[in-house]
């Protein structure tokens, strides 16, 4: 169980798809939905507590894995900033015909600018395509975790989980 995650820090595709917080590709293609990449029983529940529509369920035992109800989820993204593990993303596979909109938590300075073309990285930090920044949200409630939304080719929407700005404070490979 979770061998890939435990030995490499990266969830394998199968490990990912088995998570109760990760909706199927079919659901992702219907519209914006939270993808909760939380695989271990950690005593933690801010995602459930912050969800305005009750779409995230953990229950009384706070060690339970969060379960996403894709029907109730509106893709608002509040949970992105609430997750202390930075493990929640919102993916909208129906953004345009060919593009998906992905929203990620971002805790680096400087923030990108709307319209910027940046490198889109997968779970291993490898560049897989370019992304275009379309929205940046930060508020007191998000407590310094910005939510950055960008568009990428649709087929990459379950791969891309981070971005790299040229000149930003991040690893250059």
């Amino acid at each position: 169980m979770l061998n890939m995650l435990r030995s490499s820090g990266v969830l394998s595709e199968q490990e990912l798809m088995e998570l109760p917080g990760v909706p199927s590709m079919e659901l992702v293609e219907k519209g914006p939905v939270a993808v909760i990449e939380c695989a271990e029983m950690i005593p933690c529940n801010p995602c459930e507590a912050c969800c305005p529509t009750g779409a995230i369920k953990i229950g009384d035992d706070i060690n339970n894995l969060p379960i996403i109800d894709a029907v109730k989820c509106t893709g608002c993204g509040l949970c992105i900033a609430a997750c202390p593990g930075l493990a929640i993303f919102v993916v909208n596979g129906a953004h345009t015909k060919s593009e998906a909109l992905v929203s990620i938590p971002y805790e680096f300075l400087p923030l990108p600018n709307i319209g910027d073309q940046v490198e889109a990285l997968d779970r291993q930090g490898k560049k897989v395509c370019m992304a275009k920044i379309v929205q940046i949200r930060s508020s007191k409630k998000f407590d310094k975790t910005a939510i950055v939304s960008f568009t990428i080719p649709k087929e990459r929407c379950m791969e891309v989980r981070h971005i790299r700005l040229s000149g930003g404070m991040q690893r250059k490979q």
């Binding site: 435990r6 820090g9 930090g125 981070h162």
Partner: peptide, 16 residues
């Protein structure tokens, strides 16, 4: 195996 939580490991892996 990684000693800490998967989420913390994933966080630094996607940074490369």
């Amino acid at each position: 195996q990684i000693g800490g939580w998967g989420v913390h490991a994933s966080k630094i892996r996607r940074l490369g």
